[in-house]
Design a protein around this nucleic acid. Structure first.
Lengths: 297, 297
DNA sequence: CATATTGTTTCTTTATTGGAAAAAGTGTTA
DNA sequence: TAACACTTTTTCCAATAAAGAAACAATATG
């Protein structure tokens, strides 16, 4: 039996509260988790968890063991991070959670270049629209645009800022008339983005414009596509619209108006020693976005 | 790979200085040790030991890793000892080194009873005439009659005291005359015991008697056998002669003379938490000898 | 330069791990 | 009280990894 794995498993079970959750989350089978815990108990000669099919309860011994397991595992992690620190070539696995739209657009080329630059680091990228709990899902890193405040226990590091662009297709503008002033938006089909805090208030011009239109969606990528098809005007993050703007498929209007910016944050659990692969990745991202300023302008 | 085992192996290799020594000592094959170290290095991505066929040398990284390994392993041991502490039934393995003569005589029935009393504890008994280095040979406990001072880093706990007996066979005494006074020994075949510090000076009577005879051997068990066969007189630890005295095969002479005593010590490495099975064993031995005082009288 | 010693590699055997599915347990609900 | 929904545990089989023997390679020593 691999005792460290078993200990890790035990800690995880306590954290998530159910065997099956640990199983699906760690990509192992339920039986495996059960066996790990059982063999740990057998080796110690003590029951760690009092379990019914409905409830898991730490025994007194389990409680004590848990504390010590955590300490030992932390120390092991620190040790390995410390060794890695002194190596030229970082290696290991990074499990990253990122916002879907980011992953599909701005981050993809950055990830690709990172993989070229660090051939010994494996990536496990999970894109999701909802911000996932990093600890629960065992992520090393989350990449999120700042909206919700960070949980304590996490470090949030600003990576870059993104700007928005107001886009329409040339054909649409031809048909529906130009947009030269924020107030012009009132006469246009403006798409609403579901996750936008201010809903149908676009923060452009002095005090914003309350837009109206027939389309509302929860995906900026989807909205951009509708813009391309000439269905209306979108308030689209520049990192999404950038390629389409370059190719001329869509054009930007009200470019000189002040629009809010959003900040991309890297979130990761606080630790004694962050594994070097993680520090490197964050540095890399900051550099990468510094070298690709058009996404922010 | 079982990282825990590998770390243990690594520490051991550094302690013993050679792969092959660890192999034979731990009962594994050389290839196993080699693989353990290699896979540990592979996982860390760093070389721990610079090795030629003649010399092992810790790399700088290896040195640091070693420290941390030791710390982690110690903590793990403490944790398990602490858990065991709270269990009713101690379990595990005890690797014990004992003096050959002790094991063959006094200790054998004690071990047997211990095994009956603690069915979940395995024993690995290594009898040897030379006192072995406990750490090097990975013993949990050494049972030695006090002679050499204890190394620092070890705890020595007195278990019991043994007395000596001066023995001869009835037939021998019949032929060679009785022994009623220490000086009578001068006219008898007295056996010399090689490991005796004072060699041919028997510490009996006021200032001892310088004995003479034709037989010298390094085993009291062997000497007793020669006594049984009527070849002469032996200065024999009582725990060895006891059964023969009981059966009448040999008789004791000069029983009322003062003779030195020797102390049986349990030696074990100092640790934060001694595993309960070890504490129990030592307690057990003390009790056992308290219940069998005839060995000491 | 031969030799003895030691770590590594290779190959085969053996033991262990891991997963799918069935079974058993447990609290809830009809 | 019985059916149920949801868990953990067990069982069995396949895949994987560990372990050992022996041949191999490397290197200080005399």
């Amino acid at each position: 039996m691999d005792k460290f794995k078993a200990m890790q498993c035990f800690v995880r079970v306590v954290e998530l509260g159910r065997f099956s959750k640990v199983a699906e989350q760690s990509g192992a089978s339920k039986s495996m988790i059960s066996k790990q815990i059982s063999s740990l108990e057998a080796e110690l000669g003590a029951r760690l968890l009092q379990r019914t099919t409905r409830r898991l309860q730490l025994t007194q011994l389990g409680e004590e063991y848990l504390q010590r397991c955590r300490e030992i595992l932390r120390q092991l992690e620190d040790t390995e991070a410390h060794i890695q620190e002194q190596q030229q070539v970082p290696k290991g696995r990074l499990r990253i959670n990122a916002a879907m739209a980011l992953g599909l657009t701005a981050l993809a080329p950055a990830f690709a270049e990172f993989m070229r630059q660090y051939p010994d680091i494996e990536l496990d990228i999970q894109l999701s629209d909802e911000a996932q709990d990093l600890l629960e899902h065992n992520f090393d890193l989350g990449l999120r645009v700042a909206s919700q405040p960070f949980d304590s226990g996490y470090v949030g590091k600003a990576i870059t800022q993104f700007s928005y662009s107001i886009c329409a297709s040339p054909a649409y503008l031809q048909q529906n008339g130009p947009i030269n002033h924020p107030d012009d938006l009132l006469n246009h089909q403006c798409f609403e983005y579901s996750y936008f805090r201010s809903k149908n208030l676009w923060p452009v011009g002095a005090e914003g414009v309350v837009i109206g239109g027939r389309l509302k969606a929860n995906s900026s990528v989807f909205l951009l596509d509708m813009v391309k098809q000439g269905m209306g005007v979108g308030f689209i993050p520049r990192f999404i619209s950038h390629p389409a703007l370059q190719s001329g498929e869509v054009v930007e209007v009200l470019a000189s108006e002040q629009k809010p910016r959003m900040t991309l944050y890297a979130l990761y659990p606080v630790r004694h020693f962050a594994p070097p692969r993680l520090s490197r990745f964050i540095e890399f991202l900051q550099n990468w976005f510094a070298r690709h300023p058009y996404l922010c302008s």
